[in-house]
């Protein structure tokens, strides 16, 4: 689009380009720095960390910190690393993502192609769930999970994440299906197709892009969640974010920065992987609610 330098002399233009590229690269280095520091620190020995320099490259590479973070690092009396928490996270994140996406898809389908009197108002009512600070539901939810016998359980976390993810997944699918022509559904109905047949045969085949966006969004949100995890889970079933925080902030004795960094990268790997593989869809999810709304 517009360029700063268009109207200026050739020399000025080249100079301007150098400044622009220089700034962009400097900022890129700044953004990458924490990740690089985490990586290099995680493969240094503790002696090297104490004697050396944060940004210096490691003189020798060791993966001891990684195996310790995964398998034997201690939080209090528990010395089993993060591996249990990693799988515990997978255990509740995957069902929560699948269920909330599925329900969101049906809700979006109803709210756009099977609208009834008052359905728009119902959508607005549900949308409020996107805006509340979750602190305002924590205390009642803690008590309710206790009553249901779901406190500190994996199904309990799945339940909480589905309940508070629905507003977002519904919003995603609703905004996507809004551009599907209603005539398509009407024609299919005249041909005798019912609610589920139309969804299955016509709507679902159109949906892969929004399913990917929604799944990535939900996966990132739920995997990275700390608030629900720290309030509604206990012991070995704690999500990895909670375990990481405990490891870094409550460990006694010698502070093992290399283990902390390895643990942090382990906690970040699944979402980073998703970002690298499907960054385009990740960004689309980020901007979907905001640009439209």
């Amino acid at each position: 689009m517009a360029e700063f330098t268009r109207a200026e002399s050739a020399g000025g233009r080249a100079f301007g380009r150098v400044i622009v590229y220089g700034l962009l690269v400097l900022v890129a280095i700044y953004y990458l720095m924490p990740l690089i520091v985490m990586l290099t620190t995680s493969v240094k020995s503790l002696e090297e960390i104490r004697a050396g320099n944060l940004v210096a490259l490691p003189t020798s590479i060791t993966f001891d910190a990684w195996s310790k973070a995964w398998g034997t690092a201690c939080t209090g009396a528990d010395c089993s690393g993060l591996k249990g928490n990693f799988w515990a996270s997978m255990n509740f994140v995957l069902p929560a993502v699948v269920i909330s996406t599925l329900i969101g898809a049906f809700n979006g389908y109803v709210l756009t192609l099977w609208r009834f009197k008052g359905s728009d108002a119902l959508f607005t009512i549900m949308l409020v769930g996107c805006f509340i600070p979750f602190q305002v539901v924590l205390l009642p939810m803690a008590q309710t999970l206790g009553w249901l016998g779901l406190a500190n359980t994996t199904p309990g976390l799945v339940f909480v994440h589905v309940v508070y993810g629905l507003a977002f997944t519904t919003l995603f699918f609703r905004n996507f299906y809004v551009s599907v022509p209603e005539e398509m559904v009407k024609a299919a109905r005249i041909d005798g197709a019912d609610f589920f047949t139309i969804f299955w045969r016509i709507i679902l085949p159109l949906s892969p892009p929004i399913i990917v966006v929604c799944v990535i969004w939900q996966f990132t949100q739920i995997w990275n969640d700390f608030l629900f995890g720290v309030v509604f889970s206990g012991g070995e079933r704690q999500p990895i974010t909670v375990a990481l925080n405990n490891l870094v902030n409550t460990s006694t004795g010698v502070k093992e920065y290399n283990v902390d960094m390895a643990a942090a990268i382990i906690a970040a790997l699944p979402t980073l992987f998703v970002y690298v593989v499907a960054g385009k869809y990740f960004v689309r999810g980020l901007t979907a609610g905001s640009v439209k709304g």
């Binding site: 924490p34 990740l35 990275n224 974010t241 990481l244 925080n245 970040a268 979402t271």
Partner: peptide, 16 residues
């Protein structure tokens, strides 16, 4: 590069 931090948990960011 500018966007990857958004994929991280605030816990990871805080630890780093």
């Amino acid at each position: 590069i500018y966007l990857y931090p958004m994929a991280l948990s605030f816990i990871v960011t805080g630890t780093a």
